[in-house]
Design a binder for these strands. Structure first.
Lengths: 75, 75
DNA sequence: ATGTGACTTTTAGTCCGTT
DNA sequence: GAACGGACTAAAAGTCACA
């Protein structure tokens, strides 16, 4: 029997992807925040899945990371 | 030379997908809104790309439509 | 069955700092 | 460099009466 993992929320998936992709580009939270026109502390809280981010800001982060918006939500 | 169409915003992609998927299921805006625990007029305004919807509400709509959150943002 | 404008409540998002 | 906190302002959530 396979384990019953509880599904990640969309917030958590986004948080993980953000952190991964940012790390692969060697960017700090602050650098990414600047590129996306957002605040340093805000990006941090999104990566901790604490914030209910809006679609416009998901898009800004995607553009800063040079990926499609949907890929930030892909599991 | 291929035409230079301006890219759809994430809002517009979501709006189009929402409308399409809802239509294919034969649901009214009100029925979908009820299933997602949202207000009828709110869902309407999201389908018109008027609102900057948050990730939690995108997820509620995805669950109501029985699709993955990322597929609502897929072009 | 959907669109619109107006509205109040809640939260997104910023900015200051400390650990 | 990142987590975390408090206080603040801008904007999203959520609702309604009416077209």
């Amino acid at each position: 029997m396979t384990k019953n993992r509880n599904p990640l929320s969309a917030r958590e998936i986004l948080a993980r992807n953000l952190k991964d992709m940012r790390g692969k580009l060697g960017l700090s939270q602050e650098a990414l925040a600047d590129m996306a026109g957002l605040h340093r502390t805000y990006v941090g809280s999104v990566e901790r899945a604490e914030r209910n981010i809006s679609i416009d800001n998901i898009e800004r982060l995607a553009k800063a990371l040079n990926v499609h918006t949907s890929s930030l939500l892909m599991e």
